[in-house]
Nucleic acid binder design. Structure first.
Lengths: 137, 137
DNA sequence: TAAATATACTACCTGAAAGTAGCATTTAGG
DNA sequence: CCTAAATGCTACTTTCAGGTAGTATATTTA
């Protein structure tokens, strides 16, 4: 009941980029700030760039920055790109034909929590995460 | 953001046993009723028996049944045995020193949902899942 | 134009979850 | 006592997330 490690990395990186608007940050600096394996992070950033979530500059002094406004990038977009959103449509017990009309024993209890998590993903932007005066650990 | 498949199997099997109190059910019959790979289910049931969640009879006409009262077995016990409960103490972004006092950007939003899920696991018994007139898919 | 520094691409390695298979062991009952 | 039917144990296989490594390519700048 958690994000894949790669999704954690992706959200970390996107949040960090959102905190440094207008700056182009290299994989090296993200690696050092966020403690994510350098080579693995490089491939991840390429994926995020290809998905259009960040813009990229090649060559010397290259790197990544948030592609659009921080308030137009939602958490679900990051999760979708990395691990997909299939889990949030899935029966909690894995029954293929579980549904509201034909629920498994845990369905009703689970769906309530699941919808709350979905709301978090679909309604929270990177800008929203900036608003609170929370320190990055 | 889901249970491991094996945890799904375990909860399915426990719920099914809880619906047939006093009956000793073989791996074969559980396999046929729940569509879980036969051999894999056999090993899983052994684990649940060793953990004390079900009682077991060997030999001909052997099988498993709920070990105690249905209302004294909580979902968290099943999840704990199969995949552990570490995820529910973990930072959603994987920062090792994230905490209430030193939160990551998502901490406060996530903890609310996480605690609700923990409550579901720690407060729901197999008997509770019986009470609602829901059909097993 | 050449060196430095960055991303992009490709191949490989590792560990764990999920699944398969065979044989040993236990028990009921004719 | 023997056989059928069940669990228990052990080993192997498959798949994929996560991680490592080397090289190609792009861009800045001295």
């Amino acid at each position: 009941m958690r994000f894949q490690k790669t999704t954690e990395y992706a959200i970390r990186a996107m949040v960090y980029l959102a905190k440094h608007p207008g700056q182009r940050l290299s994989t090296r600096s993200l690696h050092e700030s966020l403690d994510i394996p350098y080579k693995y992070l490089g491939r991840l950033m390429s994926r995020l760039a290809e998905a259009g979530l960040v813009s990229v500059e090649h060559g010397k002094h290259g790197g990544y920055q948030i592609s659009e406004n921080r308030d137009s990038i939602y958490l679900y977009q990051i999760a979708e790109e990395v691990e997909g959103l299939e889990d949030y449509e899935r029966c909690i017990l894995g029954f293929p034909d579980c549904s509201d009309e034909h629920p498994c024993a845990l369905h009703d209890r689970w769906v309530a929590h699941r919808e709350n998590i979905k709301a978090m993903l679909y309604e929270t932007t990177l800008a929203d995460l900036e608003e609170e005066p929370t320190k990055q650990p």
